[in-house]
Design a protein around this nucleic acid. Structure first.
Lengths: 136, 136
DNA sequence: AGGCTTTTGGTACTTTAGTATGAAGCCCGT
DNA sequence: ACGGGCTTCATACTAAAGTACCAAAAGCCT
């Protein structure tokens, strides 16, 4: 937001400067106005692209960001979330246990709790739900 | 690609038209040049935003596009691909069987073949591999 | 028509996943 | 210090997933 205002201020400033240049060139006489206009066109063209890129990058990143609020709402604990990430990576319970230095029983407990909290019947469904909920 | 060329052609045309208008206004006399310049600036600003939006939408969709070539390379058949999609949706073998009007045995066969072709040990891993390979 | 791949299905078995229940240790706030 | 949530682990199941191997019908391609 602040950046947008800043860029817009610079835009107005540039417009004013270009006014000054155009007036100056008129007083000089037969300075090629086409050149000035082309320069203005290119500058505003680039500025338009730049501003648009800035405004479009935000929603692009937003879709990739994870909803930490949602995780809290679902009461998913940090350990459970670690397991969830491991599941989405395609690991088995045994592999997750080895990765986190835990027993397979513990992983099974976490997975079971995750399935309840995510309202899923299987780990694959849990991953799918987590992704649509922007948790993963 | 064709659209970009079209827009660019329109851009050049607009530039030429604006040249004509600017020259005409000079012959007229003291027509406010600031207005013309502002108009040019606004037009190119908008065109800049428009072109940028068009060019940015493509890579956004490109990341979501699936690599059909890769599917062929991995020798994944159409039926197997349907099963793969169902797996990523979080369905069980039984649910997939019901969805595709097949027996669970058939689904198991397809899944087994998929795991070999995707070099995965589990269905969850298969989904993960398929997504990194841009098959899903 | 014969050969090929795909698709379908089965049996029998092993492995992994998931449920239910209980329990112990830990940390944190009151 | 006590209660409560988190984490850890275990046992004993049931259910689902996956493997191996086989086999038949269907669809192509030449």
């Amino acid at each position: 937001m602040k950046k947008t205002i800043l860029v817009f201020a610079l835009l107005v400033l540039a417009l004013y400067t270009l006014f000054r240049i155009s007036k100056y060139s008129l007083f000089i006489g037969d300075t090629p106005i086409e050149l000035i206009i082309t320069a203005i066109a290119i500058v505003f063209f680039i500025v338009g692209i730049y501003i648009n890129k800035k405004s479009l990058q935000k929603p692009q990143q937003a879709t990739k960001e994870i909803d930490h609020q949602k995780i809290k709402e679902l009461e998913i604990t940090s350990r459970e979330y670690e397991v969830l990430q491991a599941i989405s990576a395609g690991l088995s319970n045994k592999e997750i246990a080895e990765k986190l230095f835990l027993s397979e029983s513990t992983i099974k407990t976490h997975v079971s709790n995750l399935l309840v909290k995510l309202n899923a019947k299987r780990r694959t469904q849990a991953v799918q739900i987590a992704k649509t909920q922007k948790i993963l």
